[in-house]
Simulated assay, not measured.
Amino acid sequence: MKKTRAIIYLIVVILLLLAVFYFISGSHSTRNSKSAAQNQRTKKITGNSSSKGSRRNQTSLTAVSINIDGRDFSAHLNNSSASRQLIAMLPYTVRVQGLNSGLEEHTADLQKPLSTSGMPAGAKPHPNDIGYWSPQPRIVLYWGDVGFYDGIHILGSFDNANAKNYIHSLKRPYKITITRK
C-alpha cells in the first residue's frame, strides 16, 4: 500500500512538473514570437536590427518628397548609414531604366555605392518600401512583395499607400527626384 501511494505521489509530482514546464515554455515562446514580430517591424523602418527605433518615433526618420514621373509623393527615410549617405546627396535625380527583373519592383542605378555599415545583410521589403540593392548600387521602389534577399537594404517607405499602384502602372524609363522636405 505504501509503495502504491509513493508511486502515485511520484506520478502526480512528475505530471505537475511537466504541466509547469509546459506553461512556462509556452508563455516564453509566445513572448519571444511577439518580440520577434516587433523586432521585424522595427528592422523594416529603421533598417537595422536594433529595437530602439519604431515607425512611431519620427525623430529618427527624415521626411522627403519623391517626384515620380511628375507626381509628388511624401516618404520617410530611416536613419541607416545608406539613408544618411543618400540624404547628404539630395536633391538627387535618377532614371528608372527599362530593366525587367521579373520582380515587383522598379530600379534605378546610382552613380556610386552607398555604405551599408551597421545594416542587416538582407531584408524582405514590402509594397511601398524604398530600398537599396547593394550588389549593383540601385535605388529600388517596391510595388509588390519580392521576398527576402541578401543585398536588399530598406531605406524607408512611402507615406501614401497608393504610391505602389502608381509605380506599378508606370512604363519605364522615367525619372525620380528625391528632395528633402
Rank of each mutant, 00 (worst) to 15 (best):
T179P: 05
L155A: 04
V12C: 09
A75S: 06
G118L: 10
V12Q: 07
L103V: 04
S65F: 01
L103C: 05
R5S: 08
G144D: 07
R56T: 12
S25R: 13
N57T: 10
F148H: 13
L86E: 00
P137M: 03
V12W: 07
Y22I: 06
D69R: 04
Q58P: 01
K3Q: 09
F23E: 10
M119N: 06
S117R: 08
N162R: 08
M119L: 10
D159G: 02
Y142G: 03
L77E: 07
G151C: 02
T59H: 10
K164M: 10
S29D: 12
L141C: 06
V13T: 13
S81W: 00
R56G: 12
L141A: 04
D150S: 15
N57S: 14
R95D: 13
L170H: 01
S51L: 03
Y166D: 03
Y166E: 04
V12F: 11
S50I: 08
G102S: 10
H76F: 11
I176Y: 03
G53M: 07
D69L: 02
Q38W: 07
N32C: 04
H168V: 06
Q111A: 15
R55E: 15
V96A: 01
S117L: 14
P127H: 09
F23Y: 13
D129P: 10
Y166K: 02
L110F: 09
K34V: 14
S115I: 09
I11T: 12
A108I: 04
G98C: 00
A36H: 11
A75D: 05
V96F: 06
D150H: 09
R84T: 08
V146H: 01
K112H: 11
P125R: 03
S115Y: 07
A163W: 02
A36Q: 14
Q111F: 09
I167Y: 01
Y22N: 08
L10Q: 11
D150W: 04
S115H: 04
H168I: 03
N79A: 15
V64A: 01
K112S: 13
A82K: 04
D145T: 13
F148I: 04
F148Y: 15
F73Q: 07
K164A: 15
Y174K: 02
L155P: 02
L77C: 10
P137K: 00
R5L: 12
K164F: 07
G122V: 02
I8A: 13
A161N: 13
S134Y: 06
S29H: 14
Q136H: 11
I11F: 08
K164S: 15
Y166F: 15
T4S: 09
T30F: 09
K44H: 15
I154V: 06
P120F: 08
A36L: 14
A121D: 08
H106F: 11
Q136P: 00
K124M: 10
G144H: 06
L86S: 01
S29F: 10
L17H: 02
E105C: 05
I7H: 00
D159L: 07
L16V: 14
F73E: 09
R71W: 00
L18N: 08
D145Y: 07
L86R: 00
D159P: 03
E104D: 12
